[in-house]
Amino acid sequence: MITMEHVCKSYRVAKRNAGMREACKALFRRETEVIQALSDVSFTIQDGEMVGYIGPNGAGKSSTIKILSGILTPESGSCLVDGRIPWKNRTEHVRQIGVVFGQRSQLWWDVPVIDSFELLKDIYAIPSYEYQNNMEELTELLHLQELLKMPTRQLSLGQRMRCEIAASLLHSPKILFLDEPTIGLDAVSKLAVREFVMRLNQEHKTTVILTTHDMQDIEALTKRIILIGRGRVLMDGTLEDMRRLAAEHGQAAEASDQNGESLERIVAGLYQKLDIL
């Protein structure tokens, strides 16, 4: 179970105007601005749930994931993941979670994928039989057979993402964080990723927390949506709840439409109406 209660996090960001002169000035006196990434975020996620975490760019999605995975320490508030405080018992905590950052790779760039997997086996100290089982299953479901012998840098984005997902599941984590896993993927790869995540959640009861800008991901995968904007939780409910919220804000006409395209429009409308862009 994951609980976050009244979590706040802010960053100090250096600011300066454009130009050489300003750059030189900033060398001596830097003007900084405090940006509130999260203010009073609370929610609870049960074991085996699949939750879509959405919001515009800069809303605080990644910060939340980084706090939950123990990379960042919040200023205030409490956070428990299966009874652990993520940033306190780091090594113990990260052993139980898997994290995929769609924008970054966790594989070793210049060696074949299988070499990265073997190294991960040692890093997580995965027992051989467990590694074998997971490898077999992941290779089959994500169609990795041909990819394993190729160096990561020569994979296409879609191929790489499948390997990334496999890499973060080798140690059978109980919780999987997916930060924009379908970003930049073609239709076939997107479908493959969605199908796989669905199956993972159903068969292994893995808790999945998914951030994405692709509303079709949300529609296909998650029953529950947490909408965040300007560091606050604005809605926590089902897709229906979100449609209702949109309707309240004067988007009734589109709300009845069921396909993903219009869902995109609903969300865009919500972001504007709620003034969180």
């Binding site: 980084k66 113990e92 994290v99 970054r104 890093i123």
Partner: peptide, 13 residues
């Protein structure tokens, strides 16, 4: 480049 995140995500020193 934020690669240190990945270091922190692995259960090793």
């Amino acid at each position: 480049q934020g690669e240190f995140d990945r270091v922190l995500l692995r259960p090793r020193s």
